[in-house]
């Protein structure tokens, strides 16, 4: 399946990238889905995703140099006019930064919203059940049953799969585009 996907997007020439894409896919999906066990997902940490996108950035530049030569690579920054070189360099650097923030932001937003809802439901049930004289029953945040599961399906399952797909797809598209 993975090899088919890489062939579809990048073509036969770049089959060597399939193991890297597969590693990225598994790392990202397991890292994001670890939120389902109640832990903080590892992809909610900026440095994890920054590491992947820096590797992607290096792959893009290496692939560009491999296909165009060092001078062709340097020359590609001065196109279409030499005047625009700083903008080209900034846009190259903005690529991995935007990929990092996209994945990190989605997972971190889910984490923040889920923990806000958990906190809100806990204080709601504390406010409602504080009249019960029995301390043990009053301390159970009963409203936390149910509603967070619906949010978890969207933020943990759907967003995890979507962001994993996106980061693999963008890596493939950018690396392949650098070789054109």
């Amino acid at each position: 399946m993975l090899y088919g996907m890489v062939t579809d997007v990048m073509g036969e020439r770049y089959m060597g990238f399939a193991p890297y894409i597969g590693t990225l896919f598994l790392f990202s999906i397991v890292g994001s889905l670890s939120a389902l066990t109640g832990m903080r997902p590892i992809t909610a940490d900026l440095s994890v995703i920054l590491a992947w996108t820096v590797v992607t950035f290096l792959l893009i530049q290496a692939n560009n140099i491999k296909n165009h030569g060092v001078f062709g690579w340097l020359k590609s920054f001065t196109e279409p006019v030499p005047f625009i070189t700083p903008l080209n360099i900034i846009s190259e650097i903005a690529n991995p930064v935007s990929m990092t923030f996209r994945h990190f932001g989605n997972i971190a937003a889910g984490l923040v919203i889920t923990s806000l809802v958990y906190g809100g439901l806990a204080s709601l049930s504390a406010a409602v059940f504080s009249r019960i004289p029995n301390d043990f029953f009053a301390s159970i945040p009963i409203f936390q049953v149910g509603l967070p599961a619906v949010l978890s399906v969207y933020f943990d399952l759907f967003t995890s799969f979507l962001q994993t797909y996106i980061i693999c797809m963008l890596t493939m598209v950018f690396v392949q585009g650098a070789g054109e």
């Binding site: 935007s98 923030f101 932001g105 937003a109 797909y165 996106i166």
Partner: peptide, 19 residues
């Protein structure tokens, strides 16, 4: 879905600034 996720990035920048 691919296009939506790419279009989302400007909103994500705002979210990162807020965070």
């Amino acid at each position: 879905l691919f296009g939506c996720a790419v279009a989302e990035s400007t909103g994500i920048y705002g979210l990162v600034v807020a965070l």
